[in-house]
Design a protein around this nucleic acid. Structure first.
Lengths: 180, 180
DNA sequence: GTGTGGTTTCAATGTTTTCTGAAATTCCAG
DNA sequence: CTGGAATTTCAGAAAACATTGAAACCACAC
């Protein structure tokens, strides 16, 4: 159904949302299409099957399948079935905070943990010898320590946000807001 | 100077750090080389000129120039000069917290602000008409509102981290840690 | 002005990532 | 089992992105 005056139909505004979300994704290490699929599921709010996504985003079956799977892996989309229908449907998490908790959880696992592992491995890997580099090495290790401390704190913070208590992040935000 | 036993020389460990930092960058929307240049400047802790970076990372002059400029734009590397030397030297911010404050500041500016602008634009863009879609449109706008609320909070939080008081983020973290 | 060392730009090129589509696989009903 | 619908996989095609290198540019000393 078209629009009245300068207003747009639902589908057009959905498309804008999808585009905006996709644009943002590129800066986030997730592919544009995957973000668009997520945007579509989120903004329509209903379960869609692979063909729905293919048709709406004009992408191939393979791409739709991979993107939807990726979203399930991130934990922000879940699979579901309808009675008497063999197709699989996909449904986006509708609570924005829950969704971002899942994102934080995954990013810690995928990025922070491996980095911290590398950093710890590097620490004390420098040979001392009778070298004239002693000072330099001390500085170097100090820099590594600062990085390790930073990311450890970040990790702890993240864990807290994500914590089983559920609304961890919101509580934190409220506390911060009270700090004036 | 080579290593004694199973330990490595400074340069080798620096190379590992550079590699680890570069690997992480890809998931962050910044190019690997730019991250490597930053890693090099951070871990050596001293001002380096374009040629130093070219030689150490084995990259072209153009690439080095662009990458270094990018880092300056992010506000985590600064230009400096040495007396009696016409070359420009680059120096990484050495305080990890200050560095991440700069990153947060830029990411808000580059990603969150434009997204919020789009979201606000979309809100109330749906025509009502005599349509049977009224409920759907109400739900749709509700979803947009939740997104807007989330990112507004995120933005406020970010601003506070970045705030002129300087150590905003650290204060926040301490408060959170006291929350048990 | 001219020359020199340093820096930036950008078209061409190379590399990586993403996407397609058809074949292989899974899953279920009968 | 068998047949058929739904889904996944993956090699190759296409698109996006990063890099090179040489020319243009700049700024300063003379």
């Amino acid at each position: 159904m078209p629009a009245s005056r300068d207003q747009l139909g639902l589908v057009e505004v959905q498309d804008r949302f999808i585009a905006a979300w996709g644009r943002m994704a590129s800066t986030w290490g997730i592919s544009r299409t995957m973000a668009e699929a997520h945007a579509l599921l989120y903004i329509t709010g209903r379960p869609l099957c692979t063909d729905d996504v293919m048709d709406r985003l004009q992408i191939s079956r393979g791409n739709a399948s991979m993107s939807l799977r990726g979203l399930v892996d991130w934990g922000i989309v879940s699979r579901m079935h309808k009675r008497g229908d063999r197709k699989e449907y996909f449904q986006a998490e509708q609570d924005v905070w829950t969704m971002f908790r899942a994102v934080v959880r995954e990013r810690i696992k995928r990025e922070v943990d491996p980095l911290l592992a590398s950093l710890h491995e590097m620490r004390d890997l420098t040979g001392v010898g009778a070298s004239t580099e002693a000072d330099e090495i001390a500085d170097h290790n100090h820099r590594l320590d600062e990085m390790i401390a930073f990311f450890s704190t970040a990790e702890t913070l993240g864990q807290r946000f994500v914590s089983p208590s559920g609304r961890g992040l919101q509580v934190a935000v409220n506390v911060l807001n009270k700090l004036h």
